[in-house]
Design a protein around this nucleic acid. Structure first.
Length: 487
RNA sequence: GGUCUCGUGGCCGAGUGGCUAGGCAGCGGUCUGCAAAACCGUGUACAGCGGUUCGAAUCCGCUCGAGACCUCCA
C-alpha cells in the first residue's frame, strides 16, 4: 500500500508531494528534549506528531531511520547565570553530577514516551557523545570563512554567510530586521554582530561541563549538536527535519546556516513544525511556568487538573487537532477526548464480534480510502478520526442487525480500524493490570450473587452489591451478553 | 516596534468559493426492576463592517480581539 503523501514544508509554506531523496530510504530528524526537567504536554506534541509520521512511513514500507536527539549539554541560559549551561546549573542546585541529572530525566522521559505509546527512534544520540563531530563541523565552517574566533569562543559570521546565502529563509526574516530587533545579550562584546551565534563557547572556570579543544576548554554552541548529529547519521542531505514551531527561529535557521556553511549545500528537503499547546489561550512553556508535566497528567496531581488522564487520552486529545494548529488545554476537552476514545475502542471490540452475511449494504471501501486520503494530506489526524467515527456508526448499526456486511467487506473494515487506530495513530487499549484472572473470578462471584438476588426480585440486595462496588470505583454494566465490569 | 498566525454552534476542533466534518455536553428515544453503561436520533455555527462574485465561513480591504516569533523553550 503506497499512496502519495503530501506534507507542509515550512521552507516553501506549501504542501508538497513527499518524494524521498533515496527511496525507499527516508531520513527523519526531530529535535528531542533537553533533559534537565520532567517532560510536559508540550514535549508530547512533537513526539506524537512525528511518531505518527514515522508509523505512516513504515506502514508504506519506507526504510526509515528516525533520529531524535537527547540534548544533555549546550543550551545556554541568558538570565543572571551569564551563559551557564542549563544542565550544569540544575546539577549545581541539586548537588549532583550533570550526567546524573541527565540520566534521571532521560529515563523519566523514556517512561513518558512509552506510556504515550511513542515508538523509540532508530537512533537517539546525545549531544555530549558527539563533541568531536561538532568540533569537526566547526572546523569546516571556520575553513570556509563563515566563523571567527574571539577570546577562545567561535562565532558564526552571519553577515559573511548572508552575502552568499539567505540567512532567515526558513522563518521569513532578513538580516536588516535582525539588526534592529536583537536584544543585548551576554558575550555580545565578543561578537562582530549581535545576530552572530556561538558555535563554541569558552567555559568559565566554574563551568562544570567542558571539553578540551584547540580553541579553548569549553562547550559547543546551542545549535551545533543537531547539525553535527543529523549529518553523522543521516548524511549531508536528508529528507525531513521536524520540531516545534518555537524552534524555527533561531534554532533551525542556525542549523540551516551551519550545514550550508560547512558543506556548501542545504541539508534538509522538508522542514516540518508542529504548533504549540496553549493553556487558557497562552503558550505552555517552561519559561512561563504554566506547564503541566506528563507525570502530573497521568497522576492527576496538578491543581489545574480535575482528574488523572490516561496517556492514551492525552495522545488522542493531541491527535484530535491537526499538528499545525494550536491546541488549547482544558479539563472539558480532555474529558471529551476520554469518552470519545473509549467509544472508538469499544466499537473496535464490537467489530470483532460481527458475523458476516451474504450481502453488504455498507460502503467500507470508501471509508478506507477516505482515511488514507486524510492521513496522506499532511497528517490530517482529526479527519482520520472523524472518518473512524463514521465507521463506529457503521459497526453499531451492523451490531444492531440493522445492516449487513459480507466477508470481504468485514475484512476491509476490520483491517481499516486496526491499521488506523493502532498501527498509524498508535493508540492502544488502556491496560487494566488490576483486572487479572483472580480479580475477575472474585468479581464473577459477586456478580453471580447479585444475579441470584435479582432472580428473586430482591432488589435491595442486588442494588446494595452494585452500590458498594460503585463506592470502590468498580462499575457494573448490565449488557445483553451478560454483566461486564470495569474500574 | 518588526515579522507572522488565528478568531467556527455550550466546549474542543476540521474544512476553506456552492454539496452545511467529527467528538463531548444538552435534548428526545431504545434497552433495563430501577439506575448506570451502551446504542439510535437531534443543532444550518463560522468576530464586526464593507467589497469582489450568480453565490463567501471560505477571496480582498478595514475595524475589533487573541496569540506566536524576534531571548532558553516542544
Amino acid at each position: 500500500m503506497s499512496k502519495p503523501i503530501y506534507i507542509y514544508n515550512t521552507l516553501s509554506r506549501k504542501k508538497e508531494l513527499f518524494q524521498p531523496i533515496n527511496p525507499p530510504f527516508v531520513g527523519l530528524y526531530v529535535c528531542g528534549p533537553t533533559v534537565y526537567g520532567d517532560g510536559h504536554l508540550g514535549h508530547a506534541r512533537p513526539a506524537i506528531t512525528f511518531d505518527v509520521l514515522f508509523r505512516l512511513l513504515k506502514h508504506y514500507d519506507f526504510k526509515v531511520r528516525y533520529v531524535r536527539n537527547i540534548t544533555d549539554v549546550g543550551h545556554l541560559e541568558h538570565d543572571a547565570d551569564e551563559g551557564e549551561d542549563k544542565i550544569a546549573k540544575k546539577a549545581r542546585l541539586e548537588q549532583l553530577e550533570p550526567m546524573e541529572v541527565v540520566q534521571f530525566y532521560t529515563e523519566r522521559y523514556h517512561k513518558n514516551m512509552e506510556d504515550l505509546n511513542v515508538l523509540s527512534p532508530s537512533i537517539e544520540p546525545r549531544a555530549s557523545g558527539h563533541i568531536i563531530e561538532q568540533l569537526k563541523m566547526i572546523d569546516q565552517i571556520m575553513d570556509n570563512g563563515f566563523a571567527y574566533e574571539s577570546n577562545g569562543s567561535i562565532y558564526f559570521d552571519v553577515e559573511a554567510y548572508n552575502k552568499k546565502h539567505h540567512y532567515g529563509k526558513l522563518s521569513g526574516r532578513n538580516i536588516d530586521d535582525l539588526l534592529n530587533t536583537t536584544r543585548q545579550l551576554d558575550g555580545q562584546e565578543e561578537k562582530r554582530n549581535s545576530f552572530d551565534f556561538a558555535l563554541w563557547k569558552k567555559a568559565n572556570p566554574e563551568h562544570i561541563m567542558r571539553w578540551p579543544s584547540k580553541y579553548s576548554d569549553g562547550f559547543p554552541g546551542w545549535h551545533m549538536e543537531c547539525s553535527a548529529m543529523s549529518t553523522k547519521y543521516l548524511g549531508q542531505e536528508f529528507d525531513i527535519h521536524g520540531g516545534g514551531m518555537d524552534l524555527q527561529f533561531p534554532h533551525h535557521e542556525c542549523e540551516i546556516a551551519q550545514s550550508t556553511a560547512a558543506h556548501g549545500s542545504e541539508s534538509v528537503k522538508y522542514w516540518m513544525h508542529n504548533n504549540m499547546i496553549t493553556i487558557n489561550g497562552q503558550k505552555m512553556g517552561k519559561s512561563l511556568g504554566n506547564f503541566i508535566t506528563l507525570n502530573e497528567f497521568f497522576e492527576g496531581s496538578h491543581k489545574l487538573l480535575d482528574q488523572a488522564y490516561n496517556p492514551m487520552t492525552v495522545r488522542f486529545f493531541i491527535l484530535q487537532a491537526h499538528y499545525r494548529s494550536t491546541v488549547d488545554f482544558s479539563n472539558e476537552a480532555l474529558q471529551a477526548a476520554e469518552k470519545g476514545l473509549s467509544r472508538l475502542l469499544s466499537a473496535y471490540e464490537t467489530l470483532q464480534k460481527i458475523k458476516p452475511s451474504e450481502q453488504s449494504d455498507v460502503d467500507v471501501k470508501t471509508l478506507n480510502n477516505k482515511c488514507y486520503e486524510a492521513i496522506n494530506d499532511d497528517l490530517n489526524t482529526p479527519i482520520v478520526i472523524a472518518h473512524l467515527f463514521e465507521g463506529v456508526k457503521m459497526i453499531n448499526t451492523l451490531s444492531d442487525g440493522k445492516a449487513q456486511i459480507n466477508t470481504d467487506d468485514l475484512a476491509i473494515l476490520q483491517s481499516t480500524f486496526k491499521t488506523f487506530i493502532f498501527e498509524i495513530l498508535g493508540l492502544k487499549a488502556p491496560e487494566n493490570d488490576i483486572q487479572n484472572d483472580l480479580t475477575d473470578q472474585l468479581m464473577r462471584i459477586l456478580i453471580d450473587a447479585r444475579q441470584e438476588a435479582k432472580d428473586k426480585k430482591d432488589w435491595a440486595t442486588a442494588d446494595a452489591i452494585r452500590d458498594k462496588l460503585s463506592a470502590l470505583g468498580v462499575q457494573l454494566k448490565d449488557g445483553k451478553n451478560g454483566v461486564e465490569w470495569s474500574i
